[in-house]
Design a protein around this nucleic acid. Sequence first.
DNA 1: TGACATCTAGAACGATGCTGCTAAAACGTG
DNA 2: CACGTTTTAGCAGCATCGTTCTAGATGTCA
Lengths: 194, 194
Amino acid sequence: MARPAKFTPDQFLDAARDAVALHGRDATLGQVCALVGAPTGSVYHRFPTREHLFVGLWLRSVRQFHVGLLEAAARPDGREALAAAALHIPRYCREHPAEALALTLYRQQVLVRSAPTDLTDDVRTVNDRIAAATTDLCRRRYGTVSEHLLTVVTTAVRQCPYGLVRPYVGGEVPQWLDDAVLASSTAILRLGDS
Amino acid sequence: MARPAKFTPDQFLDAARDAVALHGRDATLGQVCALVGAPTGSVYHRFPTREHLFVGLWLRSVRQFHVGLLEAAARPDGREALAAAALHIPRYCREHPAEALALTLYRQQVLVRSAPTDLTDDVRTVNDRIAAATTDLCRRRYGTVSEHLLTVVTTAVRQCPYGLVRPYVGGEVPQWLDDAVLASSTAILRLGDS
DNA sequence: TGACATCTAGAACGATGCTGCTAAAACGTG
DNA sequence: CACGTTTTAGCAGCATCGTTCTAGATGTCA
């Protein structure tokens, strides 16, 4: 039909990820293209704007992050599932430092309003499966589900571990941090017992 | 002597703070000056570059944040001091949401390398008094000081609470978060007992 | 083999925003 | 009451970067 593409969209996403690791959140398209080895204009055959590229990177990283998180949450034992989910966060940051850094590029809450309209659906629904898994974890841990308990679980399993890891994201995440994650996570979960 | 200044440096810092609250981390000098009501060029009689202005804002916010933190850490009872220090973080974010947002502008570790040379000294030493207070807290809690224990205290008192509060910074920080901060902080401190 | 669609390649365009410049203004001092 | 100094006021230069455009290349399918 036509000339085959020399570069894949994922190559550009990878390059964007590396550019962020190298130059921070305001990496330029020029830096991205230089990493790919492609001319500047080539991005626009895959991503209509710079924002599409970087939001696309964020979405891909979030989804990749969710794979392991969902696996952890699927463990048969409820307590184990909660602990494994919390510990998945430092683990992910160790195994995928650059992707973890890309996670810090945006916040969903903000992105829902500011993202290009053809991406808002993706941004809005990207957390749906995690939300379902959280509800499940909540029911298994407390036997019931309420808005407050959901917040407690989310805080214990994602927010707090992420906050602990955050200063190390992109670099070396110390091993002892796992102890801190586990200790703080279970302590917060106990708040839901009363 | 000379024409008196119509605007103070602090006015520009305040405006930078508000511009960040309004337009995010890449607020422009134009937006800052619009908030002051000053012409664009006026900034340069106080701050040689844009970076000086925003790093200056960050430094001012850090120092303001430290005031309450040092007060909390000065409490006679060691345990109370640790708890009060941890709880100071959500409190500060409630009382000074815009300044708290300015704290997220940079990270000291990065800034030490990237800041303008005439500010690196300020950046490097801005945490010194906090470091001393942390050592003191550590000694009072555990009776001894080691690198590991210092990391535990820092994580429990600053890193973890900050991580919990971070998603809410700039907006409303829920009251129940204080419970989570206290629970996770004491749980992490217990790690130092073994 | 030729037409066509899609891509590469890189230059050009346009907007934005930081920085420096000039002229006028204001105020204390000699 | 001039003078010198410092600031206001806003414009202009300059660089950067996102985006678009044009020309040429390349492979597929009829």
